[in-house]
């Protein structure tokens, strides 16, 4: 749901935003960290920071959803920095099939590639939105996503075309 609060001079309703985006943010954090604990903490700390600064909606650049994803991303990396070996370093393989292999491969590629492919290919952000979030040029992000796909395939043992 595209919340247009960013064009109104009001305080965002964090409760409502959690209801709309909480699950997506949690899943995003989990994909980056492969840890339920870090994912829960990252979302909690994101809203903690938002409540603390409680910015006006007009002070938030871009869409609220992108703002929250960016905040959660920062919290995940803070947590990973503090705990390089998260408690659930290996993903919980609830599906012994190809999807779990792909997810496991996702955890093996570099962070910059992982966040690029998650934001674009899973969360559905536009290149412009995700580029703003990651503070890179859209063209650089395209390269990252392309590289991430190749790295994923390599991690999965899939032959990669030299043209890829």
């Amino acid at each position: 749901m595209p919340l247009k609060q960013n064009v109104q001079n009001v305080k965002p309703d964090w409760s409502q935003l959690f209801e709309h985006h909480g699950d997506d943010l949690y899943r995003f954090a989990y994909r980056l960290s492969s840890s339920r604990e870090i994912a829960e903490d990252a979302v909690q700390e994101c809203f903690v920071s938002c409540l603390k600064s409680n910015p006006l909606a007009t002070q938030i650049r871009g869409e609220m959803r992108a703002y929250l994803f960016g905040a959660v991303r920062n919290q995940v990396y803070k947590a990973l920095k503090r705990n390089p070996q998260p408690p659930e370093a290996k993903p919980i393989l609830v599906q012994p099939d190809q999807t779990s292999e792909v997810f496991a491969a996702l955890q093996q590629i570099p962070e910059s590639s992982r966040e690029a492919i998650v934001l674009i290919c899973i969360e559905g952000f536009s290149y412009d939105e995700a580029a703003r979030m990651l503070d890179v040029e859209p063209s650089a992000l395209r390269v990252r996503v392309h590289r991430a796909r190749r790295q994923l395939k390599e991690a999965l043992g899939i032959e990669v075309n030299s043209n890829d």
Binding site: Y26, Y30, A39, E40, V94, Q95, T99, L106, V118, K153
Partner: peptide, 14 residues
């Protein structure tokens, strides 16, 4: 590849 990434079920939060 994208579909497989999306299809993976994330363990729900507590």
């Amino acid at each position: 590849l994208d579909q497989a990434l999306k299809a993976f079920t994330i363990p729900p939060p507590r």
